[in-house]
């Protein structure tokens, strides 16, 4: 346990720079987005009100008030989020492969630590999770700040205010990242963790058997997916809706846990018996 925490901390220190860069890009881009979108709206309002002599009431009726949703739906807001997602996805692979590359082969050190080698797996997957939650937490922190900036720029009567939750609810894409309830949060990110564990297993297969390992990894991933969706397939094509939805949910959770356990066991086996530096 202690060694696991030490490894988590060590791995975390290795990504803080990349992590800080992602946070910085997100913050700057989104703030710029708030300013740009707000200014566009204000420019349009000025044009209509003062050049076309439209009355305020008519303007508001035909163009509507500005809400933060306009910002959320712009590329300024979504772009950095997509970048962060890509960053995390990329990092799932980098977190392993960087230990093999170069002449400083850190993997020797990791594998020779007097601790179970599965701790390396746990530490790396924990880091992916921390990084992901860190980005989500950061987004939740900067959202109110961005809303304040918009409040400062757009006068009251031209603005509808929404709460963070209302904004998240209005964007289905955002509810995947920031689900509505804690249960969904656990289920969504649990599923994410499961996917990462499958990918890690596939990576370790490649690291153990190289070319053959790539195929083994692909087959393992496909098998995991089939096992995962087998209750759904059975329900749809064989059992004609035999299960009640809640039973199906429980079955899916059980299947997820089985696949997770299989991935961890397989990764442990590979790290112990099959890995090659």
């Amino acid at each position: 346990m202690k060694n696991y925490l030490k490894l988590v901390n060590f791995e975390l220190n290795r990504i803080t720079k990349l992590f800080a860069v992602l946070l910085g890009i997100t913050f700057v881009t989104q703030i710029v987005g708030v300013i740009v979108v707000s200014r566009d709206y204000l420019n349009m309002a000025n044009e209509k009100l003062y050049e076309e002599m439209m009355s305020k009431a008519v303007f508001l009726e035909s163009f509507g008030q500005m809400s933060f949703l306009q910002i959320v739906k712009s590329v300024w807001f979504v772009g950095p989020i997509a970048l962060c997602i890509a960053g995390v996805a990329f990092y799932i692979f980098i977190i392993w492969y960087r230990d093999w590359v170069g002449k400083n082969t850190f993997i020797y050190r990791l594998l020779m630590l007097p601790t179970t080698r599965l701790n390396i797996f746990y530490a790396k997957i924990t880091n992916i999770l921390i990084m992901t939650f860190g980005l989500v937490a950061f987004q939740l922190i900067i959202l109110p700040i961005e809303m304040l900036v918009m409040k400062g720029m757009v006068p009251n009567e031209f603005r509808t205010d929404m709460s963070v939750k209302e904004i998240v609810n209005s964007m289905p894409e955002l509810t995947i990242i920031i689900p509505n309830s804690v249960i969904e949060l656990i289920l969504y990110y649990g599923a994410g963790l499961l996917v990462v564990s499958i990918l890690f297993t596939a990576i370790l297969m490649e690291r153990s058997f190289r070319w053959k390992g790539i195929f083994a990894g692909l087959i393992y991933s496909a098998l995991a997916v089939v096992v995962l969706i087998s209750p759904l397939l059975l329900q749809e094509f064989v059992l004609n809706g035999f299960f009640y939805p809640i039973e199906l949910l429980v079955l899916e959770i059980v299947m997820g846990l089985i696949v997770l356990a299989a991935s961890i066991w397989m990764s442990g086996f590979l790290l112990m018996k099959k890995i090659t530096v």
Partner: peptide, 19 residues
């Protein structure tokens, strides 16, 4: 096993620490 690494160590021809 994991405890063996407190009894035996390996010094490869390249350094095992991060640059």
């Amino acid at each position: 096993d994991k405890n063996t690494f407190e009894k035996i160590t390996f010094i490869p021809d390249a350094i095992t620490m991060l640059p």
